[in-house]
Amino acid sequence: MLDELLGRASLKDRIDELEEENERLRSRYEAESDRRAEAATARQDAEERVNRLEDRIAQLEGELERTSEDETGLSVRHRHQLRGGRLEAVLDRLESFRTGAEGALTVGVSDGGLSDPVRADLEPVLGDRVALVDDAAPCLCCVDDEGLLAVTLDPPLVPDREATWRDRFALEREWFLPTGRHAVALIRTDLFALGTYEGDERVDYRGFESDVKGSHSKGGFSQARFERIRDGQIDDHLERCRDALAAYERGGENADVALFLAGQRGVVDALVDESALEPAATAAVDATGDPEPALEDAVRSFWTTELRVL
């Protein structure tokens, strides 16, 4: 009676309603937190399983390749990683090769392998070993019509070159070696480095690191929150990378400079897909450490060509 007289009864009823509403919201929040934690845990479990399966696939593919080589005897005679002076010496030898008219074939082989017309040209010379050219794709293939010389090369810039028969191999140094003014950018989830070069000499540099959280081993809501924070930090970092590259391209002296992107494959692909960048070439490289030394490692890896002697 006293509560009603003082008007407190309605207030108490309102308080009870708000407490009930608060309890409902708390239950929904906890359920949503549990759902997100379970989803994060399931995602991590799935990623771990994918990684295990990919490792197993790589192992089985290696065993299959070794088995195929044992059964067929198909394997490259020599395989070399070439850069710098050694690469130039090999190119000199290839360019010095001479034969009769239309006796030397140079062809760019895409990811899809040899085209049927080129395969028909090569099979009389290489026989079953033509399969090794498909294995090396994408690559450049140089073969003479007598089978005295047969190699593939995977330079940083694999040209879209149709089959060319001449008295010598049709090679361009800029496919293999740093020439003229160009730029190489290294991009990781936490690092950016950009060097401008005149030939193999660096004339300009800029780089930075971003604060991106590393791996996390805890489960539950804490892990889900951690992953959201980390994803946001990576997005912010890639935005900084896009801004840095855009500022570089806006520079008047860089308008016609070839830009090469290297780094973590998924990160590089995402950056290209989400921007207006049109790099001359991209490459996956394993470059760790601080920005400047990591860029040096990336440039060394980028300008490396694998030679396979068939």
Score class of each variant (00 low, 15 high):
Ser217Asn: 07
Glu306Cys: 10
Ser215Lys: 04
Val90Asp: 09
Ala89Glu: 15
Asp235Gln: 09
Asp121Tyr: 02
Ser275Gly: 09
Val212Trp: 04
Arg242Trp: 04
Ala298Phe: 10
Gln81Pro: 00
Ser75Ala: 15
Arg93Thr: 12
Leu307Glu: 13
Ala246Pro: 00
Gln223Gly: 14
Arg49Val: 09
Asp231Glu: 14
Ala255Asp: 13
Glu146Ser: 12
Thr196Arg: 14
Ser217Trp: 01
Arg228Ile: 10
Gly214Val: 00
Asp34Cys: 05
Gly232Cys: 00
Arg161Lys: 10
Arg181Ser: 15
Ala244Pro: 00
Ala31Met: 05
Leu157Pro: 00
Leu91Ile: 05
Leu140Val: 15
Leu82Tyr: 08
Leu261Arg: 07
Val272Thr: 03
Pro178Cys: 10
Glu209Ala: 09
Thr99Ser: 13
Val143Thr: 03
Leu277Glu: 02
Glu47Gly: 03
Leu157His: 05
His237Arg: 08
Glu71Trp: 12
Pro159Tyr: 05
Leu25Phe: 05
Asp200Gln: 11
Asp154Glu: 08
Ala185Tyr: 08
Leu105Ser: 10
Phe226Lys: 04
Leu18Val: 15
Phe97Glu: 13
Ala9Arg: 05
Asp290Pro: 07
Glu296Leu: 09
Val267Gly: 00
Ser10Leu: 08
Ser68Ile: 08
Leu191Gly: 01
Arg66Pro: 02
Gly180Pro: 07
Ala120Met: 01
Glu227Cys: 02
Arg77Val: 06
Thr179Met: 10
Ser217Leu: 10
Asp34Leu: 13
Ser33His: 08
Leu177Phe: 06
Val90Tyr: 10
Gly180Arg: 14
Glu249Thr: 09
Asp211Trp: 01
Ala131Phe: 00
Lys12Cys: 03
Gln264Leu: 06
Glu17Leu: 13
Thr67Pro: 01
Asp3Phe: 03
Gln81Cys: 04
Pro156Cys: 07
Ala281Lys: 09
Val267Pro: 01
Val285Met: 02
Tyr205Glu: 01
Pro291Ser: 11
Tyr197Gln: 06
Arg119Glu: 12
Glu71Thr: 10
